[in-house]
Amino acid sequence: MSATMTSAAPAGTAGGQRGPALRHAVYLTGRSLRILRREPVYLAFTLIQPMVWLLLFGALFERVADLPGFGDTSYLEYLTPGVVVMTAMMSAGWAGSQFIDDMQRGVMDRNLTSPVSRGALITGALAYQAVVTVVQSLIVFGVGLLAGARYDGGLAGVLVVLLCAVLLAVIFAALSCAVALTLRSQESLIGVSQFLTLPLAFLSTVMMAPALLPGWVGTVARVNPVDWAARASREALLGNPDWSAVLGRAGLLAALTLVMAWLATRAFRAYQRSV
């Protein structure tokens, strides 16, 4: 074999190389989903916090909705879409930890010496996070409905909530991957993730109506992607939504998603150069 094939790559595998990025991304996403299917308890862990927000926080601050500015919704109805997108963000903040695991083991080195598409390593991680977010969001939203929240928006509204949650998750998953590839330690990733996600959740209209935010928080909220997602989601669930406001914010989310995915790819290249 070594005598007959010393000068060219095996023909069969070379032919299979056309457009392998998508195929590789699908295999890698599938690998991650298999882990989740085997150990669904991880998914359960990521749902503890949102349940606290939704059920305890929602109950504790029930009377907040009596304030002018919340309209005629209950606080639970106001809070539920916000908790959906907040959960998407917080859970996506850990996405980079898989890369750190892979770097600490030999998995990253083995991948980089294989023909696996470099882009697929990033898109596989992001696609996995997107699928997880859909499942999480449906559960959190479902619990909101069970607890008594009701919306006039119908299916279109729910789809917008899912879309916003997925875009926000991909934004933060990409950021998490970029941080992981740059700092390369679990501790730093936890630090950055905690430092960023909780403040961003509070500097938004997730828990408090826009009209009631202190001025400076309102200003920050305007450039906060969590707020874009929360506002677009709440608007889309109304009986007669202002679609231009929904599309405007979803557009911003989509644009930021592309920027962040690009950033993660850059971080990956920088990592490769530093090996």
């Binding site: 595998t13 298999r34 882990i35 998995v107 023909p115």
Partner: peptide, 28 residues
């Protein structure tokens, strides 16, 4: 390439590990 540190996927079975590797290299 067998790196110095372990490179198999501990959450998958042996056969699943090999299957993913085969797909990465475009094997039928």
């Amino acid at each position: 390439y067998v790196p110095q540190k372990p490179c198999f996927d501990p959450t998958a079975t042996g056969r699943e590990n090999l299957t993913l590797q085969g797909h990465v290299y475009g094997m039928p």
